[in-house]
Amino acid sequence: MNTVNLTCIGCPLGCQIEVMMGDDNEILLITGNTCPRGESYARKEVTAPTRIVTSSVRVYGSRTGERMVSLKTASDIPKDRIMDVIRDLRGVAVPCPVRIGDVLFKDVAGTGVDMIATKNVD
């Protein structure tokens, strides 16, 4: 058995939630939340936490002299893959022009998720 401590991000109250986990990583007890939203947040965070990853990479050939374009994962990826995604982006550069929504990298770090541009660069 072990316990995981979380801060709920559902509202400014920021309840400190404690999740008791069994030996097979099953949830035994969730305490500390003041409302049901905290419980579902905690459930997701301990079983399958995900995040959108954003970053920026170099561009070349920009007419307006821009050096970087920002980008994001097209959907959530598992939290423990964040660093793999970032590693995959290191040292790469993309040609201009770039439009918001353009797929810049397919299946980043084998997550099955694409990285798309979040800025127009001419």
């Binding site: 959108i52 970053s55 920002s70 994001k72 979040t118 800025k119 127009n120």
Partner: peptide, 25 residues
């Protein structure tokens, strides 16, 4: 917003989570 490349913008306005440059655009 052009330098705020993280997501979390526009939840109220567009009901979706945009990055700063997308919201600005």
């Amino acid at each position: 917003l052009n330098q705020c490349i993280h997501n979390g913008f526009g939840l109220h306005t567009f009901q979706e989570e945009l990055t700063g440059p997308e919201y600005a655009q």
